[in-house]
């Protein structure tokens, strides 16, 4: 199977180029396995991040034939040849398929992605009904792979001003948590034309999320809560 992979090492390359590889693929093989095979058998300089190999750590987000996804859960059999592999778009490249995620993480940290409880904690668990807990399904499972944010045009244009779908999904995860006591501040923090409202509901993020999460819906829910608050 033929692969065309983006290569760039600022140490030695004046500019990025595309390199072709031919790999013997087996039935059922995932793209990550094909990349590892290239690295092990053909070219140890090919660089990418990886860890769990099963879609839970979020290391290996990349652009595969034009769409962002995780290499470890993308079967090669489903891909059109030659498979074109590029780094996640719109953010700086460190080397080959490895991108600089700092802005993405910064936006995540900026939404205060942690439970805030001001009351004294009980000796046991804070109670939460199964229904209240269910509101977190589809929000807490995010693996911070950045597939969504780097496929979002609004994030490409204003990565430092628009939070991006991943960070907003996290904001929603805490806004929806019945135990959290900072809802009002969280909503206030997202006001203004950019942080939240730059989302134009283009839904790219939903299409690419490898965990099947729906940042657009989460963003909509935040907007609804904001409106409800100002009424």
């Amino acid at each position: 199977m033929k692969f065309k992979i983006y290569r760039f090492n600022p140490d030695v390359d004046a500019k990025p180029y595309t390199q072709e590889y031919d790999v013997d693929v087996q039935p059922g093989m995932m793209l990550l396995a094909a990349l590892l095979k290239i690295k092990d058998e053909q070219d140890e300089t090919l660089s990418f991040r990886r860890s769990c190999g099963e879609g839970v750590c979020g290391s290996d987000g990349m652009n595969i034939n034009g769409t962002n996804g995780l290499a470890c859960v993308t079967p090669v059999a489903e891909l059109k040849q030659p498979v074109e592999i590029n780094p996640l778009p719109g953010i700086p490249v460190i080397r080959d398929l490895i991108v600089d995620m700092e802005q993405f993480y910064q936006n995540y940290r900026d939404v205060k992605p942690y439970l805030i409880v001001n009351d004294p904690m009980p000796e046991v668990e804070l109670p939460q009904t199964p229904e209240q807990r269910e509101r977190l399904d589809g929000l807490y499972e995010c693996i911070l792979c950045a597939c969504c944010s780097t496929q979002c045009p609004s994030f490409w244009w204003n990565p430092d001003k628009f939070m991006g779908p991943a960070a907003l999904l996290q904001a929603s995860r805490f806004i929806e948590d019945s135990r959290d006591q900072a809802t009002a501040e969280r909503l206030a923090d997202l006001e203004g034309p950019f942080k939240l409202f730059r989302c134009h509901t283009i839904m790219n993020c939903v299409e690419v999320c490898p965990k099947g999460l729906n940042p657009t819906k989460a963003i909509g829910n935040i907007k609804k809560r904001m409106v409800a608050r100002t009424l």
Partner: peptide
């Protein structure tokens, strides 16, 4: 208390 979203029983 740190925020882990444990699954819940009917009594919370």
């Amino acid at each position: 208390h740190f925020g882990v979203p444990f699954s819940r029983l009917d009594n919370g």
